[in-house]
Amino acid sequence: MVLLCVAGGEITPLIEVFYFDTVLNLKEMIQDALGVEIGRQTLVYDERALLDDEEIRHCIFGQDPATVTLRVAPLPEGTKIAVQLESSLKQGSMRTRETDSVADLRNKIERRWGLRNCSISLFHLDIQMNEDLPLSAYYVVDGAKIDVQVTFLEEGR
């Protein structure tokens, strides 16, 4: 077994693969873990793009866990994705772009859900998202689930 750290975004999962697995098998595991379609993934190790048919044992990873960089091909400009929103108050879906910031999505949620005098935090894959970063930094793709945490503020503050 080889333990690989998949870097490239704000979420860095650890994935175990067998020596005889292929890079394509690894991409399938990444799709399962992050939701990123295989066709949009490029994996890079030691400044070299890994080929789908390469076996993991031929990649000569140095340390354990080795770090593989995931590069995600962007969607065509202007393409919207649907994200699933879940909170203790409400559930629903919303269309957005992967390039929108986390703050942009939070503002859309506030307006559409009619939330005022509250603090909203957004989570994807159990990681709290930084408002200054784009959704793509957290691998928010079509169909992604976003957990919305709403905290109401006391009046007069």
Rank of each mutant, 00 (worst) to 15 (best):
L4C: 09
C5K: 15
C5L: 13
C5R: 14
G9E: 14
I11F: 12
P13M: 10
I15V: 12
I15Y: 12
E16L: 07
V17C: 04
V17Y: 06
Y19F: 03
K27C: 04
K27T: 01
M29N: 06
M29P: 00
I30L: 07
Q31K: 07
D32F: 12
A33L: 09
G35W: 03
E37N: 07
T42L: 12
L43H: 06
V44N: 06
Y45W: 04
D46N: 12
D46A: 08
D46C: 05
R48N: 12
R48I: 11
L51Q: 13
D53S: 11
E54H: 09
E55K: 11
R57M: 01
F61C: 04
P65G: 07
P65M: 06
A66S: 14
T67I: 05
V68G: 02
T69H: 14
V72D: 10
G78T: 06
G78R: 09
K80T: 08
V83A: 05
Q84T: 05
L85R: 02
L85M: 08
E86A: 09
L89P: 01
K90T: 13
Q91M: 10
T96L: 02
E98Y: 12
D100H: 14
A103V: 07
L105K: 00
L105C: 05
R111F: 13
R112H: 13
R112V: 11
W113R: 13
L115N: 03
C118P: 05
C118I: 10
I120W: 01
L125R: 15
L125D: 08
L125K: 15
Q128K: 15
Q128A: 12
N130E: 15
L133A: 03
P134T: 10
S136W: 10
V141D: 03
G143A: 08
A144G: 09
K145C: 09
L153D: 00
E155V: 11
G156K: 01
R157G: 00
